[in-house]
C-alpha cells in the first residue's frame, strides 16, 4: 500500500516538475555544467595554460570565439576548465557543510537544553559576519589556495543547515510517531537517523541546491578579490579579477567568465526555486 502511495506521489512530483519550465531550464544548465566539467579535456579547444604572449588580449575571432587573455591563453578553454573548480568547490562545500550541519543540528534539536543553547549561540556568532566577511577573514589568516577556500566556505556554510535541521527536529520530536518509538525503547541515534532525518530531507535538498549556487559565487568572489584560487589555475573569479585591469582595452576578459558564473548560478537557483515550490505545502 505504502509502495503504491509513494509511486503515485513520486509520479505527481515528476509531473509538477515538468510543468515548471524554469526548473527544467535550470536542470539542463546544471547537466550542461556537469558534462562540461567531466569532459573538459575533450571540449576545450586548446590547453587552458598554454601561453602565447604575442597574442595577449586578442579579441574574439573565429579560432578563439571568446578571445585571449593577457598571457595569450584561450579564454573559452579556461572557462571550460574553470567549470571543474566551480563544480568541485560547490560539491565539496555543500557536502561537508550539510554533513556538519545535519549532525550538529540533529544533536541540538533532539537533545535540547544547555547543548542546544551553546550550539545556537555559536551559530549566532558565525551569522554575525555578513555575507562572505567570515570567509574573507579566514582566507586572510590561512592564505589563498583552493583547499583554504573550501575550508573557509565550510566554516560559514554549516550554520544554515544546522539551524534548519534543528528547527524541524524541534517540531518533529514531539510528534506521536517519535514518542511511540521512544516508548518502545528506540535509541536516540536510531530515532534521529531512521525517523527524523528522512522527514527533513526535502528541506535539506532545497537548501543544498541554493547552497551550490552560494558556494560557486563565494569562491568566485574570493578569487575576484585575489583571496581564492591562484593563477595559473583557471578559476572564473580570478579570470574576472584579471579582466578588471583591462576593462578599457579588452572587455571580453570580463564578459565571458562572468556570464559563465551567472548562467551556472541561475541554473541552481531555478532548480532550487522549483523544488521549494513543490515541497512547500503552504505555497501549493
Amino acid at each position: 500500500m505504502n509502495n503504491i502511495k509513494f509511486k503515485v506521489q513520486s509520479s505527481k512530483f515528476k509531473a509538477q516538475i515538468l510543468k515548471n519550465k524554469l526548473t527544467i531550464v535550470g536542470g539542463f544548465l546544471i547537466i550542461f555544467l556537469i558534462l562540461t566539467a567531466l569532459f573538459a579535456p575533450f571540449i576545450a579547444p586548446y590547453d587552458a595554460k598554454e601561453q602565447n604572449l604575442y597574442e595577449g588580449l586578442n579579441p574574439p575571432d573565429y579560432q578563439h570565439p571568446f578571445g585571449k587573455d593577457r598571457l595569450g591563453r584561450d579564454i573559452l578553454s579556461r572557462i571550460v576548465y574553470g567549470s571543474r573548480i566551480s563544480l568541485l568547490v560547490g560539491i565539496v562545500v555543500v557536502s561537508v557543510s550539510a554533513s556538519i550541519g545535519i549532525i550538529i543540528g540533529s544533536i541540538s534539536g533532539y537533545i535540547g537544553g544547555r547543548i542546544d543553547e551553546i550550539i545556537m549561540r555559536l551559530c549566532d556568532i558565525v551569522l554575525a559576519f555578513p555575507g562572505i566577511l567570515l570567509a574573507i577573514a579566514i582566507m586572510s589568516i590561512l592564505g589563498p589556495s583552493l583547499s583554504n577556500v573550501i575550508i573557509a566556505l565550510c566554516a560559514m556554510g554549516w550554520v544554515s543547515y544546522a539551524r534548519l535541521i534543528r528547527g524541524q527536529i524541534l517540531s518533529l520530536r514531539e510528534r506521536e510517531f517519535v514518542l511511540a518509538i521512544e516508548a518502545i525503547g528506540g535509541s536516540s541515534a536510531r530515532i534521529i537517523i531512521k525517523h527524523l532525518l528522512p522527514n527533513v530531507a526535502s528541506s535539506v535538498i532545497v537548501e543544498a541546491t541554493f547552497g551550490m549556487a552560494g558556494a560557486i559565487v563565494a569562491e568566485a568572489g574570493l578569487s575576484f578579490l585575489g583571496l581564492g584560487v591562484q593563477p595559473p589555475h583557471p578559476s572564473w573569479g580570478s579570470m574576472l579579477n584579471e579582466g578588471r585591469l583591462f576593462l578599457l582595452i579588452a572587455p571580453h576578459l570580463t564578459i565571458f567568465p562572468g556570464f559563465a558564473i551567472m548562467v551556472t548560478v541561475m541554473g541552481f537557483n531555478f532548480v532550487g526555486d522549483g523544488i521549494r515550490d513543490l515541497t512547500d505545502v503552504k505555497r501549493q
Binding site: G221, G237, L240, T254, G258, F259, M262, M266
Partner: peptide, 9 residues
C-alpha cells in the same frame, strides 16, 4: 543570480 563582481564591470 548576477554576481556584483560581474555586474559592476
Amino acid at each position: 543570480s548576477m554576481p556584483s563582481f560581474w555586474l559592476g564591470p
